[in-house]
């Protein structure tokens, strides 16, 4: 199982290294969103206040695009079916796809957070760095697991582009709430302090574990024909 995980994650990242779709298309899209938020909200004080939420909202919309891309690769030429026929463990496929997705998302989130710091004039509180890192890892893991799970569900189906957001966004709502609150604490938004944020990291961890385990176990039934 772990060998499949490593191979598949390596394969996905290699595809990205060569095609540069995420770097050339999704990252600019995410940055554009951060600029558009500023147009829509039109006030420096409001922007500084809602910056953590906007970072995660943009991350989620970008996730949708990345998941589409990740599974479009597998749907082409029936690659996913071929993997299963070759005897690849379904849990391994799930973890491999999730790992590659998490790596791409992680890069994107750093850029989004950087954009918030630069464009929205946010600051990281000194004691908030550990919290921010904790939030970053747990939220990314949760998002990647859910993305892989629902991406796999919709793969190969007609109309998956429109179905995926409907299925996925309600599920990742707890991540949006938790990650936003924890990031607010790390950035000291609204007078929140770093200690306020840790319980939310607990929620994010729980979320990631639930969907990680659930996805590993159920992925086979979702993708098999």
């Amino acid at each position: 199982m772990w060998a499949i995980t490593r191979l598949l994650a390596g394969k996905d990242l290699r595809v990205e290294m060569r095609s540069r779709v995420i770097i050339n298309q999704v990252v600019p899209f995410a940055a554009l969103m951060m600029v558009m938020f500023a147009f829509a909200l039109d006030s420096d004080t409001v922007l500084a206040r809602v910056a953590p939420g906007l970072v995660w909202l943009a991350a989620m919309f970008s996730l949708l695009v990345i998941v589409q891309r990740s599974f479009a690769l597998e749907a082409a030429d029936g690659a996913l079916d071929a993997l299963r026929v070759a005897g690849a463990n379904a849990g391994g496929i799930f973890l491999g796809k999730a790992l590659a997705l998490a790596a791409q998302l992680a890069v994107l989130e750093v850029i989004l957070l950087g954009a918030a710091l630069v464009l929205y004039n946010s600051h990281i509180v000194g004691s908030g760095i550990a919290l921010l890192v904790g939030t970053y890892f747990t939220a990314t893991a949760g998002l990647a697991f859910v993305g892989t799970l629902y991406g796999g569900l919709a793969v190969g189906a007609k109309g998956r582009e429109t179905l995926l957001p409907l299925l996925m966004l309600p599920v990742v709502a707890p991540v949006l709430i938790g990650a936003t609150r924890a990031t607010e604490a790390a950035l000291g938004t609204n007078g929140a302090t770093a200690t306020d944020g840790w319980p939310w990291v607990g929620l994010l961890t729980l979320f990631a574990v639930v969907f990680g385990v659930g996805g590993t176990l159920s992925f086979g039934s979702l993708i098999d024909e």
């Binding site: 709502a173 707890p174 319980p199 929620l203 969907f211």
Partner: peptide, 12 residues
């Protein structure tokens, strides 16, 4: 699985 997670996070 999702419903309790949503419920408790919103409640919090």
């Amino acid at each position: 699985v999702e419903v309790p997670l949503v419920h408790f996070s919103v409640r919090w």
